[in-house]
Design a protein around this nucleic acid. Structure first.
Lengths: 205, 205
DNA sequence: TGCGTATTAGACCGTTCGGTCCGAACTTTA
DNA sequence: TAAAGTTCGGACCGAACGGTCTAATACGCA
């Protein structure tokens, strides 16, 4: 893919994760990506909507590489991987420096009820995310209680993280996310068979 | 407060909780509240921003009456009240019929990074919400483990619920919220002293 | 009866929006 | 060198936006 294209995609991704899709104008993207003008932009994307779709794709790919990949590390115990993944989400938000949030969450909140094209794509993102965690839990099933519903627990984890990022952004305080991440780990540990797998202290550190 | 004013507020609240603040135009509100024209609207509100602030206020008041009030019911065991509150959130989303979501969440996602006026107001909403749960947990402390961090647990509950409503909206499936609500209850029950207070089955129903 | 408020209707304003079109210059590659 | 793709700069379009203004009509109440 051309340099310019990814440059535009990156600039748009930053803007969208801060202001959302609707409030990000094409002119903003042009300025952010340092393009010469509108024709320069429309040389690469046929519409703002198409740009939005591609930004979502790219954001998910990046997230899959930098975040979800941890869930598949073959040399690490699955439940430990899950904890590392949660840490990675915290680290990702920390890198953003307070500003911005989950690109999926912001698009979901904005467009779930009004733009079916986006809704369906975001649904697919969540679905793939769920399925990654679900298969990790499946892999870890010898360590887990028999009655653990992997799909449900996966959705819970994602919802808690998305909600946490949102609250963190409002309060401008990363420790909110850190606290929720720690609690989430304890919740996951609750599903572990007694004596099996890794230990997580129920005490607060 | 005048009839017309609340009529406008209600129409705006519905629209905003579906499309967000930015994508809700004054003309939409006028149509939704069946006003005769712009001058009719600006007779009651001096700007769209002021309307937004008042919608947020009103939404929190309604939520406080219909939702948070449960947390203060004096005749019911505190932890049971917490479960009832979670049920109420599910019921509230069910009433919305899939469409729309948490008015706080949608405004937070949209405006947290770009509009400080809204950001601090939403922060205050979350703060009051947290403090309600926190004082309930304080009341229930004889039944809870000593190391329970009430503030942190409160934030966790809220984040999980906000995230759950968001996912539910994207997937258009209330059972997502129901599952997370059930899991959240189990997580809360995890903090209860052995043998104390009410029992919640860890098994899935 | 009169006075203030509520309602109706619509013209109008400046700005921003997504998007199109044009024409020229520059760069890469065949 | 010719052709194809890229960059540049800006004029332009119709629509939608938040908001103002005027002016007439209805209504509730002292």
């Amino acid at each position: 893919m051309s340099d310019r294209r990814t440059q535009i995609l990156d600039a748009a991704a930053t803007l969208i994760s801060e202001r959302g899709f609707t409030s990000t104008s094409v002119a903003d993207v042009i300025k952010g990506a340092k393009l010469s003008g509108k024709s320069h932009f429309y040389h690469y994307f046929k519409s703002k909507e198409e740009l939005g779709y591609e930004v979502l794709n790219r954001q998910f790919e990046r997230f899959a590489e930098r975040g979800l990949a941890i869930l598949r590390e073959p040399m690490i115990d699955p439940l430990e991987r899950l904890n590392l993944f949660i840490d990675a989400v915290v680290a990702l938000q920390s890198e953003r420096g307070g500003r911005g949030g989950s690109p999926f969450g912001i698009l979901a909140a904005e467009l779930a009820d009004t733009h079916d094209g986006f809704r369906v794509r975001i649904e697919a993102v969540f679905e793939r995310w769920v399925s990654q965690i679900r298969s990790l839990l499946w892999e870890a099933r010898p360590q887990l209680h028999d009655d653990v519903d992997a799909g449900r627990l996966s959705r819970f984890i994602i919802a808690a993280l998305e909600g946490a990022v949102l609250m963190t952004r409002v309060k401008r305080d990363l420790s909110v996310l850190e606290g929720i991440a720690a609690d989430l780990k304890r919740f996951i540990a609750m599903h572990v068979r007694d004596g099996a797998g890794l230990q997580v202290h129920r005490n607060l550190e």
